[in-house]
């Protein structure tokens, strides 16, 4: 059995340029570190890592509770600044049922409009989740068909 243990021997701060700095052992400062989730969609609260500017892993955290409070806040804040997967709450309008089709949607980040290039850009993740990718590569999440209202379901059903 392969196991990965958390190793928290760093602390975090931000420099004047707003970059995230990790202070690792012996007080060495690593500038421009990046926090990431390992399973951003299927398990957003389990499995985090801190990568250095070159993309190498500095630390692995199986959950954020192992981080002391100030660091955890910085970590979470930096995570949210990088994450952009709007969750579609309602489909208001689609320009056509044939693709490319322009969708007007309501998301948890406000209303927006995007172009769906083809039906293959709607992918089924672990059911019942769906992932929609727009023409610019932004991913939108649909938690479940059943959570959408009737109108949205009816529109979406034409693409599934």
């Amino acid at each position: 059995m392969i196991e990965t243990k958390s190793n928290v021997d760093f602390s975090l701060k931000r420099d004047l340029f707003g970059r995230l700095v990790a202070i690792v052992k012996d007080g060495v400062e690593k500038v421009g570190v990046v926090p990431v989730r390992a399973f951003p969609i299927s398990a957003p609260t389990a499995g985090f890592a801190l990568l250095d500017a070159e993309g190498h892993e500095l630390a692995w955290l199986s959950d954020l509770a192992s981080l002391p409070r100030p660091d955890r806040e910085i970590f979470e804040q930096a995570l949210s600044a990088r994450e952009f997967t709007p969750e579609i709450r309602r489909l208001l309008e689609v320009s056509s049922f044939a693709t490319p089709s322009t969708w007007t949607v309501e998301t948890d980040r406000g209303p927006t409009r995007f172009v769906l290039k083809g039906v293959e850009d709607i992918r089924s993740l672990t059911p019942p989740r769906l992932m929609v990718t727009d023409s610019h590569g932004v991913n939108y999440l649909i938690q479940s068909l059943n959570l959408l209202d009737r109108h949205s379901r009816k529109l979406l059903d034409r693409f599934l």
Binding site: F17, G18, R82, E83, F84, G137, V138, N139
Partner: peptide, 15 residues
């Protein structure tokens, strides 16, 4: 990153 672009205005010392 992930479809979001960020533009930062900096001077010599900070953002």
């Amino acid at each position: 990153h992930a479809g979001v672009a960020t533009l930062e205005l900096r001077d010599a010392k900070h953002t």
